[in-house]
């Protein structure tokens, strides 16, 4: 029977793993829907008042300080006896401004899970951020897995000089701490954007996958089925990618899944520091960056929303990876 079907059956026995798979799939559906513009395409619309609280907290009651501030200007003017010559014009402009915005769109006092500084819906923002962060994680992991598999296959299969070269490359990349390398490349590229982040993370993150794939190829290249393929005249690349690759692909798959989590975390840090996605894109990292100043004002909902969305996805993805590994490599248990 097909080993993938056997693995799937083993996977189905793991209830926790199945639940996590469903959670991950829901996130991926959300990501696709947001990317296609079916949902939350209006996330950047300013629908609520600034820092609109979540609906379950009720609208913010203006405190005494606010009303006192508003009444203040009148008496001071009387005290000094100086009349602001522009006051009338300014008042008119202010009236026009508030009146204008009130007629164009009524701003909600509360939003489902609160609003940010500009009154954008945090819930929609989180979904949009999920799109960015999850996409970066998946794409960067796929890119890193591609590089790692390609390099690992060459090094493990050909050995000798080729192996020496790739091992040298590996030791160069691993002797620089991961985040430092990411930051150094970010400093040089000096260009924000989703694609840049994916490239940076992929180019720096292939080393772990390379190591494992290389070891697998070294193990497999002396097996009988590879010798048989050699005997019927299969070429080197064919033996590598048609014969051996399906037999080591479970290793790549588990690593891919592990790296998604790692890259999502890295993207959040990069975007938080401002070296990540562009200013017109929202990701969990940029949400947390805004939250830094909000928290001091007591507006906790944006940080809570971004944290919860990320924690649920990363936990589900990690547990799913564990289940996947158990299902694909039953000897480990």
């Amino acid at each position: 029977m097909n080993p993938w079907i056997l693995a799937w059956r083993r996977f189905c026995r793991d209830r926790l793993g199945l639940v996590c798979l469903v959670v991950v799939l829901i996130y991926i559906v959300l990501m696709t829907a947001a990317a296609a513009g079916w949902i939350v395409s209006d996330w950047s619309k300013e629908v609520g008042v600034s820092y609109a609280p979540p609906r379950f907290l009720g609208p913010e009651i203006p405190s005494k300080n606010d009303s006192a501030k508003r009444e203040n200007p009148a008496p001071t003017r009387d005290d000094t006896g100086i009349v602001d010559p522009l006051a009338k014009d300014l008042a008119e402009i202010a009236k026009e401004l508030t009146g204008g915005s009130a007629t164009s769109e009524a701003r909600a006092a509360t939003l489902a899970f609160g609003g940010d500084k500009w009154g954008r819906d945090v819930l929609k923002k989180v979904v949009k951020g999920t799109e960015t962060s999850l996409f970066v994680g998946l794409a960067a992991a796929a890119f890193a897995a591609l590089l790692g598999t390609l390099f690992g296959a060459q090094a493990g299969y050909y050995g000798s000089r080729v192996d020496d070269f790739f091992n040298w490359l590996y030791s160069v990349f691993t002797s620089i701490p991961y985040l430092l390398l990411v930051l150094a490349i970010a400093a040089v590229v000096n260009q924000k954007g989703t694609l840049t982040v994916i490239l940076i993370l992929g180019l720096t993150g292939w080393t772990g996958i390379f190591r494992l794939v290389r070891a697998e190829y070294m193990k497999h290249k002396v097996r009988e089925y590879v010798l048989a393929a050699d005997a019927i005249g299969a070429s080197g690349p064919r033996r590598m990618f048609v014969h051996i690759l399906p037999n080591v692909s479970h290793v790549v798959l588990v690593q891919l899944s592990l790296h998604v989590v790692l890259f999502i975390k890295s993207e959040v840090i990069l975007s938080f520091l401002g070296f990540g996605v562009g200013v017109d894109t929202v990701s969990w990292g940029s949400m947390l960056a805004e939250a830094q100043s909000e928290l001091i004002l007591g507006k906790w909902w944006q940080v809570a929303a971004a944290t919860a969305a990320m924690a649920v996805l990363v936990t589900a993805f990690s547990l799913f990876t564990d289940a996947l590994r158990d299902a694909l490599d039953p000897r480990l248990k």
Binding site: W284, V303, M310, T315, S318
Partner: peptide
């Protein structure tokens, strides 16, 4: 605990 970002 590991799934919550260090930033948080």
């Amino acid at each position: 605990g590991q799934s919550v970002s260090i930033l948080v």
